[in-house]
Design a protein around this nucleic acid. Structure first.
Lengths: 193, 193
DNA sequence: TTCATTTCTTATCTTAAGTGAACGAGTTAA
DNA sequence: TTAACTCGTTCACTTAAGATAAGAAATGAA
């Protein structure tokens, strides 16, 4: 199970056996049931997540309505905003599926960084990489119609469309469930002809 | 002029006089006329920008149509995606106004980082900060209607609405110019009653 | 100043998304 | 088994955005 974590890390820095042992001894792995809420609006938290298996989602409740803005699946990292600014969270995080993840906090990061400076490097590379990816994703979202966004998603993360409830997917695409239904019908119609 | 740069840096790390002198001697300041294109689609570039005064914008040309996805103004940093992946750029960058900016490249960064390790730290903090800000902005965009997005922008960056042409603003908001006009008329109408 | 160009708004029509309600399928609980 | 619930889809209707064209206002150059 923790091999997934080491695979991920090895994309950025290489670890000695000793370093691997230190990490393995940290007891950061947690298993959570589908539907579990990891973070609530208004709550303060210092927990950062790395998904080993499963899927979690981030959503706001605005005017009593859930607005899903992101999904995180295998090999993805989520540091809630409230960890950075130490303020109450504006959003929720919950498990879409039974999920296995690591739970860490910034203090542990500091400790590991002081023992193994290469982690500092990894963090910077990771942050820059995420930032770049995020910017491309944002641009793509802005420059596309809902229908195009759905088609893009079908290309980029086809698994999501299978594993996530439609109403969450709709709000992730910035539309309402009926619109998603019609949009899919429209696409099917086009492909028939 | 370079005081603006030092003000910016001092938000993250403090510089000795010697360090300031090294930076001042680098000859990185450039003045560019409104309309100048700093980066073209298809072009490779290693230039990173920091705006001291003025405004630049990032836009794609999709189906012959300009799609503006970001504006950068005073005290903001822009590292084009192509600098990171050394691939041809997918987008353009041009000056909305006469602009004064610094132009640097990653090699200079490496050199400065080796002389003054505190810059490494600044880069990581900056990347993380930008990432966090970007995520909030993205969430806000996704969870809002065009009208709400316009109102948000009016709050967050009122200057932009004055200094940027309407058709660029429209595409930045993810809509077409006529829609922006109507939307503004709608808002005025509501406020009258 | 005048003319041409660009920029912004307005109007019309078309298309698609929002809303509320209804329906059926599948699930859960009594 | 039935009743209640959730979820996805569909329908009818409303609202707003896209496409296009035309007109008004601002800008720049001769």
């Amino acid at each position: 199970m923790q091999d997934i974590l080491f695979d991920f890390i090895s994309k950025y820095v290489s670890l000695t056996e000793e370093e691997q042992n230190v990490i393995a001894s940290l007891d950061i792995f947690r298993s959570v049931k589908k539907g579990t809420i990891l973070l609530k609006e208004g709550q303060k938290s210092q927990e950062e997540y790395f998904i080993l298996q499963g899927c979690i989602r981030k959503y706001y409740i605005i005017d009593g309505e859930e607005k899903t803005t992101a999904f995180f699946t295998e090999m993805e990292v989520l540091t809630p905003h409230c960890v950075k600014n130490n303020a109450p969270s504006e959003y929720f995080i919950s498990c879409v599926e039974d999920t296995i993840l690591t739970v860490t906090n910034p203090d542990m990061g500091v400790e590991i960084n002081s023992k193994f400076p290469k982690f500092e490097l990894m963090c910077r590379i990771l942050a820059e990489e995420l930032l770049a990816k995020q910017q491309i994703t944002f641009d793509e979202f802005k420059t596309s119609s809902p229908e195009q966004r759905y088609l893009n998603l079908l290309q980029a993360r086809p698994d999501l469309i299978q594993r996530v409830p439609q109403h969450q997917l709709a709000s992730f695409l910035g539309i309402k469930p009926p619109s998603l239904s019609r949009l899919r019908a429209r696409i099917l119609e086009k492909n028939k002809v």
